[in-house]
Design a protein around this nucleic acid. Structure first.
Length: 208
DNA sequence: TATATGATTGCCT
DNA sequence: GGCAATCATATAG
């Protein structure tokens, strides 16, 4: 499979998130061989977005240096860089950095449908049954053996990269606000394949 | 320095 | 449906 190039991610975050639907996430694992999943759910986070880790960071217009501290600094990395972070002190979430270097933005991979390597994924998961394998952002990183070690890596070449999958028709895509956030809830920046069994079962943040 | 919270999941009632 | 796990970061004092 040919990896999606940096230019694919060197664009505004929203279309990248939509275009990743139907694409493939591939981990050429040293022990398991090739782990492959079809992306069925994504979310976008941008520099001016209150829900983004870079929300209160910026770049110095003179030097281009990032001002402020914290993990969000890594969202200014070059497009196609892995942004992996620990949520609730428990689970690792996988993002891919978008937009040019010096502009913050990322797409969160929220769910995939297993394509190959299911037996290895099942061995890694506590609850390996059916959709439970990969129907959530923390579940898929566990299944794919993706964690802290991948943070900052290039996702435009092995071992972990994306590849073009099948073309998705517009009517197959559904949209909602994002899940699990408390600010920026009105931005409808979650996209998923309607009726796909492997979409996560969270509730959009603007519905109470 | 101390405390609150979160881009979640799985187990409990 | 409620809630604990467990830690990096943000915010307050």
């Amino acid at each position: 499979m040919k990896p999606l190039p940096s230019s694919f991610f060197d664009r505004p975050t929203l279309p990248v998130a939509q275009d990743l639907l139907g694409g493939l996430l591939i981990h050429e694992h040293p022990e398991a061989g090739q782990l492959v999943g079809r992306i069925v759910e994504t979310e976008a986070y941008t520099e001016d977005d209150p829900a983004c880790h870079a929300a209160h960071l910026a770049t110095d217009p003179e030097t281009g240096a990032v001002t402020g501290q914290g993990r969000g600094r890594d969202l200014f990395a070059p497009p196609g860089t892995a942004y992996v972070y620990l949520i609730y002190g428990v689970h690792w979430l996988l993002n891919v950095v978008t937009e040019p270097e010096g502009t913050a933005g990322a797409v969160l991979i929220r769910a995939v449908e297993p394509v190959s390597g299911e037996s290895f994924m099942q061995n890694r998961r506590e609850r390996p049954r059916d959709v439970e394998l990969t129907n959530g952002p923390g579940k898929l990183t566990e299944a794919f053996d993706i964690a802290e070690g991948l943070h900052g890596a290039r996702l435009t070449a092995p071992p972990v990269y994306f590849a073009e999958g099948q073309v998705i028709k517009e009517e197959e895509v559904a949209q909602s606000s994002r899940i699990g956030i408390s600010s920026g809830v009105k931005r409808p920046w979650r996209w998923y394949l309607a009726d796909n069994r492997f979409v996560s079962n969270g509730t959009p943040s603007d519905q109470c």
